[in-house]
Amino acid sequence: MKMANHRNLAIAILALAAVSAIVLRQLEDKTETVQHPNATHPAEQAILPANGQTPPFESGAKAGLLAPSFTIQGENGVSYSVGGARDKAVLLNFWASWCDPCQAEAPELNQIAEKYKDTLDIYGINVTSYDYKANAERFVKKHKLVFPVMFDLKGEVYAKYNGSVFPTNVLIDRRGVISEIILGGLTAEQLDGKLEKLMQQKRL
């Protein structure tokens, strides 16, 4: 009788030890997988403005919405894309060679491209469906544009942004959100002031 009791006690102790080992292992696994909410890798960090707002989910041609995404090939054969977060803010410049304000702002855009080369990408998009490609190519050579130029042959990208005026400049922050859509030409000072505000962001 005593031997049976001892055997039962030994079995109970072994069972308890096994359960304890399983519970301890589960706790260790949880400890290994839980990270501090802010302990993300640099590539996964959200790009937020100074006020800490998160990006919207809706896209559209309107300030405060995610910029409509697209990929288009530049005259240099390189493909350029817009859509989602990126390392630099973007200025989309929709233009036509016959547009007087476009001709006036071309030298200013060259200066801006140089000034903000570390924080801003300028994409010069010729809306070729409203232009002639040969004239657009002469425009690029004449003004010696230093930023990437691409030809929107069917006006598809322009349509995504509800284009109706030349020039149209779209300012997109590093989250991929449209900051402002500027219809028509601006002075160099006015555009520079808007870009200064666009640059006032930080990576959190």
Rank of each mutant, 00 (worst) to 15 (best):
I181K: 11
G124H: 01
L186Q: 15
T128I: 12
V146L: 13
G185L: 01
D87L: 10
F166S: 02
Y123G: 01
F94V: 05
D29H: 15
G83V: 03
I22Y: 12
I122M: 04
C99Q: 01
K144Q: 14
P107M: 01
D131A: 05
D152H: 06
T40Q: 12
G74P: 03
V149H: 01
D152I: 03
G163W: 01
K62Q: 14
G155W: 00
E108L: 10
D87S: 11
G83I: 05
L91I: 11
L66Y: 01
L27Y: 15
L66Q: 04
I112R: 02
F147Q: 06
A159N: 12
E156H: 12
E28P: 05
V177D: 01
A18M: 15
A18P: 03
E196K: 15
A46Y: 08
S79Q: 12
L48D: 05
Q201L: 08
N162E: 15
F151L: 14
Q35N: 12
A89R: 03
D173A: 02
N76G: 14
F166P: 04
K144S: 10
T119V: 12
H143P: 06
G185F: 06
L48N: 06
Q103F: 04
V177H: 02
C102Y: 02
K30A: 12
F139I: 04
E196I: 09
C102P: 00
P68Q: 08
G185C: 02
K141A: 13
A106C: 09
R175G: 04
K141I: 06
F57H: 09
N162S: 12
P148R: 04
V127S: 01
R203P: 03
K141T: 14
V157A: 05
I172P: 00
S59L: 06
N162V: 06
S59R: 11
F151N: 08
G176D: 00
P167V: 03
L66S: 02
